[in-house]
Nucleic acid binder design. Structure first.
Length: 172
DNA sequence: AAAAAGATGTGCT
DNA sequence: GCACATCTTTTTC
């Protein structure tokens, strides 16, 4: 998913950018994953079909994930940071910062900049007209680094954090 | 019913 | 670098 784009349209204005940092949460043998203890009302969309948006609340903020496996599996990729490209002025207003590097440098910052909240949970990122994944560089290759995931207390050894090498827009 | 934990961010030192 | 605001979900009593 590194090198793809995420875009969201609100009131006719698109915001979004290039995905530069993600973390994978697995369907099996991953105690840090929300799917680890089975399907509940709050994590239901993580068990939907690949391409579904899973938005969950954390510490009075939101984070967004892309479901990555077949319906019923429970695997998803957390979008942690993007390089801002579209609607930078709108994102600056939503975030309350002019500094481009402080707009989308973390999963909750990203959701605030793109105005993503729980109403979008369960949306189809492939077919939606307003929030979707996009390819902007089909013939370009990207160098990706991996490392342990950030901010979790279980399964800290798994190298499931992925970053675009050399990006200036990573969360840490 | 009550309390704690959580895939976080900010502000202050 | 550390404390803490803030709120939903999950766990405990």
């Amino acid at each position: 998913m590194i090198g793809k784009a995420i875009i969201h349209k609100v009131d006719g204005t698109w915001t979004g950018g290039l995905i530069v940092e993600t973390e994978a949460y697995l369907a099996v043998d991953d105690l840090a994953s929300h799917s680890a203890r089975g399907l509940t009302k709050s994590n239901a969309s993580m068990f939907a079909a690949a391409g579904t948006l899973y938005v969950y609340p954390i510490h009075a903020k939101y984070c967004m994930n892309v479901v990555t496996e077949s319906e019923g599996s429970g695997a998803a990729v957390l979008l942690r940071a993007i390089e801002p490209i579209w609607g930078i002025d709108a994102m600056q207003i939503r975030r309350g910062h002019d500094d481009i590097r402080r707009l989308t440098r973390g999963p909750a910052m990203l959701c605030q900049a793109l105005q993503v909240d729980r109403r979008l949970d369960g949306h189809d990122l492939i077919r939606s007209k307003s929030i979707r994944l996009a390819s902007i560089a089909d013939n370009q290759s990207f160098e990706v680094d991996d490392a342990p995931r950030i901010g979790i207390s279980k399964a800290q050894d798994l190298p499931l954090r992925f970053t675009l090498r050399g990006s200036r827009f990573l969360s840490r």
